[in-house]
Design a protein around this nucleic acid. Structure first.
Length: 428
DNA sequence: TCTGGGGTCCTAGGACCC
DNA sequence: TCTGGGGTCCTAGGACCC
């Protein structure tokens, strides 16, 4: 294929990703309605097309739909993130062979840049990619093509909404753009959330066309540079670059809601300690060290007694050592605890992350090289053992106290691509 | 009884400096 | 006696995303 220098941006995403992953590894689930639940088996966060057809809504709490789902014979699964992460890796590895640059935007989505061929037609490229991902992974993708990221997102939406598109839409090749833009409500545009769409609607701006043609200064006054960039992209200018995905994280968070609310300090401390252990391991797996730690608690969004607290600690020396981090988190947990409230969610954040390779050795608080090596080796060994024998083979005593607040995950799928013991067995 | 988790980016305002 | 104003850095919080 000869190429011209005109570059296009495509947004490629997997349809109903979590449900598709489950259906892909478990043939019994194919052509059946499937829904996936969030942590705690709380909300419905993914639905197979068959489940959509039954008018099961995204984000509804499971307890409200439980009965109806079982009547309709819907397969209900807890989310299995290690499976989805593994499938995601395979998907991205495939895609990157068919584009110039790639930015992995989320677990099931990537922006890619590609050159247009001389006839400008990218449909053959897109069709090939769709076929390949279906054959290799059992997953269907949608491809939206445009001049920039915002327009690629719009095109992706159109590809999903228009029946005859067959999952592919190129916004740069349409004759009557306005007729499509009019059909896209502002709150469906990437970057326009609840607050902004409320404001836009109060100004009489209802669809993508009206937002694109709205007065610039009005947008800047209310939405700042973010809004201005968004509008420019809708018009076709390129403002948002493709970000190479190997850049390291800015912060790492582990947080979760509890099955039953917490009222005791020792329980809160234990929860935060467990999250801190996970967060530390996550940092080490990405060669990062933290130089600021935050912990937070809050009551339920839906409770009428509201309480929320955050506590921070800045560190002189960045660290990825679980023991050091635990000490700080345990101390911070006392600051945010309040016995008068039923606490329903808590978390820890590792912030101001530093890549180990760029780290300067501090002169103050100098520890002998041997000490540092010792503790590094200990952490590395723990990580290795946990990897080999599955998580939590080695952990800290604080995690072993009986828990009254556990996370529900009752409906986990038992087949997996990441655990050899869970590979499906075939009986002949 | 039961309502997700993990991120990024931007801005306003305070503290501090010269 | 006269006590300004602009730049920079940091932080908390808002908005948004999947």
């Amino acid at each position: 294929m000869t190429i011209s220098s005109i570059e296009a941006i495509a947004l490629i995403d997997a349809n109903n990703f979590y449900a598709s992953c489950e259906q892909s590894i478990n043939p019994h689930l194919r052509n059946r309605p499937v829904v996936i639940l969030s942590n705690n088996d709380a909300c419905i966060i993914a639905r197979s097309p068959e489940a959509r057809a039954l008018k099961i809504k995204m984000g509804t709490p499971y307890f409200k739909e439980k009965e109806r789902l079982s009547k309709l014979d819907v397969a209900v699964l807890s989310s299995n993130y290690s499976l989805y992460a593994d499938m995601s890796k395979r998907l991205m590895n495939l895609l990157k062979n068919y584009c110039e640059e790639m930015e992995i935007y989320s677990i099931d989505e990537a922006f890619v840049s590609i050159y247009r061929p001389n006839d400008k037609n990218l449909y053959p490229w897109a069709r090939k990619l769709r076929t390949l991902t279906y054959q290799n992974l059992g997953i269907t993708i949608t491809i939206g093509i445009g001049e920039n990221k915002v327009r690629a997102k719009v095109a992706n939406k159109l590809a999903k909404n228009i029946d005859y598109s067959a999952g592919i839409f190129d916004l740069a090749r349409t004759k009557d753009e306005n007729s499509y833009f009019k059909g896209i409500s502002v709150d469906k545009i990437w970057g326009i959330g609840k607050q902004t769409s409320k404001w836009l609607k109060s100004k009489g701006i209802k669809n993508a066309q009206e937002l694109r043609d709205m007065k610039e200064n009005e947008i800047i006054k209310k939405l700042g540079v973010v809004g201005k960039r968004l509008q420019l992209e809708l018009k076709g200018y390129k403002c948002l670059p493709i970000k190479k995905s190997n850049k390291s994280k800015r912060e790492i968070q582990v947080s979760r809601s509890f099955g039953t609310p917490i009222t005791k300090l020792e329980d809160l401390t234990q929860v935060l300690a467990i999250y801190a252990i996970q967060a530390s391991a996550k940092m080490r797996s990405q060669s990062l060290k933290t130089s600021a730690i935050s912990v937070f608690v809050r009551t339920s969004k839906y409770s009428n007694q509201k309480y929320q607290r955050v506590a921070h600690k800045k560190l002189i020396n960045a660290t990825d050592n679980t023991n050091a981090i635990l000490k700080i988190v345990v101390a911070l947990s006392k600051e945010i605890y309040n016995p008068e409230y039923k606490l329903s969610k808590a978390g820890v954040l590792m912030q101001d992350l530093i890549n180990c390779h760029y780290l300067q050795k501090s002169i103050i608080n100098y520890k002998s090289q041997e000490d540092i090596k010792k503790s590094e080796n200990l952490m590395r060994t723990i990580d290795l053992l946990n990897k080999k024998y599955n998580n939590n083979a080695i952990t800290w005593a604080i995690t072993k106290k009986p828990k009254e607040w556990t996370i529900n995950r009752n409906l986990l799928s038992h087949t997996s691509t990441t655990d050899i013991r869970k590979i499906p067995t075939i009986v002949i």
